[in-house]
Write a protein that binds this DNA or RNA. Structure first.
Lengths: 151, 151
DNA sequence: TTTCCTGCAAATAATTTGCAGAACT
DNA sequence: AGTTCTGCAAATTATTTGCAGGAAA
């Protein structure tokens, strides 16, 4: 049975301790990335993370960020979602949520994953398919954009 | 009010006629792309379309394919969906369907859009968000992959 | 010290764009 | 003729990979 995933409110140090217990090394890059994610109020793309840590750690390379995001996801600390066009977005697994993305203005709304429980049941019953609402985004038109539509 | 969108069973010529009526030109590239889409049993990526028409029309450039897919979509003939990772997939608007994509094996299942009517109602009521089930894919694990899971 | 991690540079994959000439209508 | 398309080459965006040196445990 795997180590418990850090819960809401976990500090960067808690997450790093989790890594240590899993046998992964705690490096400057990982510390920087985890801090950036803990500080991020919501989700961030790989590039945004690289930019955010560039002030404090200018030498950390973008490829290191990508490699560590992948590793941190495999260790259960992070999850990522595809927003349709453009870059994937990452957030703490403890802070899991689904996304609604506006096709017109690009805004990404965070919504609780429970909203998909019914769809989940239907897809499983009819197709034997287990949906993963954290991994994809629902595209459509947000309320403000809809209201400025042509009549 | 826009011209009616070609219905199921439309031939390539019907679609091309539709283009003419909308004031768009009928060129070799567009004919080739529309034929490829009508012949496609399901959906195809831009690259697959470019490859498919390369035999009959070797000179048609990939960038022309991209430009025309965009134009044909704007004219209501085609729609595209994002499958998570990788390239977008196109199909005839008359043949509209949603997608379930397996995170493990990559298979894309085509499913009727009506499966999302309930989610649609919920998202609209709770967030004023109008979902577009043709434009995104539901990621998860398909039945065969699930059954070969570790216990 | 041994294995894992990192920077750097280059490679990929999926599109997009500028431009001058070619093709529809 | 006049506007729209197209090929070609180069630029973009997002991400991945090879390799040799550097750092955790």
């Amino acid at each position: 049975m795997p180590e418990a995933i850090p819960v809401d409110g976990a500090t960067a140090e808690h997450v790093l301790e989790h890594l240590r217990h899993r046998g992964a090394r705690v490096t400057t890059a990982r510390r920087a990335i985890v801090e950036a994610m803990v500080n991020a109020q919501g989700h961030r793309t790989a590039d945004e993370i690289a930019a955010a840590i560039h002030d404090a750690y200018p030498s950390i390379n973008r490829s290191t960020v990508y490699r560590n995001l992948e590793e941190l996801e495999r260790l259960g600390v992070l999850v990522h979602a595809h927003l349709g066009h453009g870059a994937a977005t990452y957030h703490l697994a403890a802070n899991a949520h689904s996304h609604l993305v506006c096709e017109r203005c690009g805004v990404a709304l965070s919504v609780p994953t429970e909203l998909f429980s019914e769809l989940s049941t239907t897809m499983l019953a009819q197709y034997g398919f287990t949906i993963d609402p954290l991994h994809f985004s629902v595209l459509g038109i947000c309320a403000p954009c809809r209201s400025t539509d042509a009549p």
